[in-house]
Write a protein that binds this DNA or RNA. Structure first.
Lengths: 175, 175
DNA sequence: CCTTGACCTTCCAACGGTGGGAAGCCCCAC
DNA sequence: GTGGGGCTTCCCACCGTTGGAAGGTCAAGG
């Protein structure tokens, strides 16, 4: 079975199969006389395992561990569960981050008239989160901070802006 | 104001400021005689706008559009709202995908004894999603598909596996 | 036998954002 | 004038995936 057939049967693209081989996630495939990679049904089985794990969001390094346990028939299910738990907490953390973004954005969207006028709380918030936060809390920007020049310097750290310096999460899906 | 100061004041790293300049997101900074980039408070303001937009998960291309509208005082807020809405639906889609992953995984984790025994529904599902799906629906795998060899070929498309060929979403946050 | 087209091979580049680091110049305080 | 911390440019890495170019192979049909 050549790589194209294995790809179809497993749902993993030929490109990715080669990549997984190159990076050592899967063992090097045997070759035909002419140099074509040759796959057994068992190989395809493994590829589908990988595909499924990817679908569940596991990183390649995690999949590597899972594959090891998969092959080890004397594994302890506790080890598998541990990896899965670590992963799900990552998933939930990413969900929380995205939900915080979406929540904030929804408030701003709701406050935007969306007509021909230029006034827009969305831009206002991007420009100066403090103001819009205040808006949300009903306080009309106490004092006369001439914030539009920002020469007063770092008020960026003010008013719990979400994660103002952490190594942020991915933001765009692979399109 | 040099790049380091601008970075501190804006919350955007010097590295990223240079990157944004290089990619055209922000205009090229003026230089001092000795070649240092020089930033005005207004530049810092723009950088903070960008930073905030990134915090809300906007992609750089989207930020580019937002910046254009921001600078255009005769903009229509409808245009801003449109971008924000498009973005929030992306956010929600990613959330949905992650939640589906987390949901499935949670079921599997709940079903895993997590002890010294090797039996593990997590691995079982990765190996053959159909079985575990069946498990969830109470149906005990009808018929005798010898699915563990998979030589019957692409049953991978069987039983609504989640998104079995789409251009998946990012899976790991930037650590 | 030869052509054709669909496959395979390797290699190289790109995407989005970000960080790390090297080599070399600059600026300020001491 | 010297030292340490800025700044500059440049290249590399991450992660997973896709794309393409250049060349070899296979199988079917003429």
């Amino acid at each position: 079975m050549n790589i194209g057939e294995a790809a179809k049967a497993s749902g993993v693209s030929a490109k990715m199969i080669r990549y997984y081989e190159e990076t050592g996630l899967i063992p090097k495939a045997t070759r035909t006389e002419s140099g074509y990679r040759d796959y057994t049904p068992s190989d395809v089985h493994m590829l589908r395992f990988i595909r499924r794990a990817r679908d569940l969001g596991f990183a390649v390094t995690e999949i590597n561990e899972l594959l090891g346990l998969w092959r080890d028939t004397s594994r302890r299910s506790a080890d598998v569960k541990k990896i899965a738990k670590a992963h799900i907490s990552e998933l939930r953390q990413r969900i929380d981050e995205l939900e915080e973004m979406a929540g904030t954005l929804q408030v701003l969207i709701d406050g935007c008239s969306g007509d021909d006028r230029p006034d827009c709380p969305i831009l206002a918030n991007l420009q100066s989160p403090a103001d819009t936060k205040a808006m949300r809390h009903g306080a009309p920007a106490k004092g006369k901070l001439d914030r539009h020049t920002a020469h007063g310097a770092q008020q960026s750290a003010c008013c719990h802006a979400p994660s103002t310096s952490k190594p942020r999460a991915k933001r765009k899906p692979a399109k």
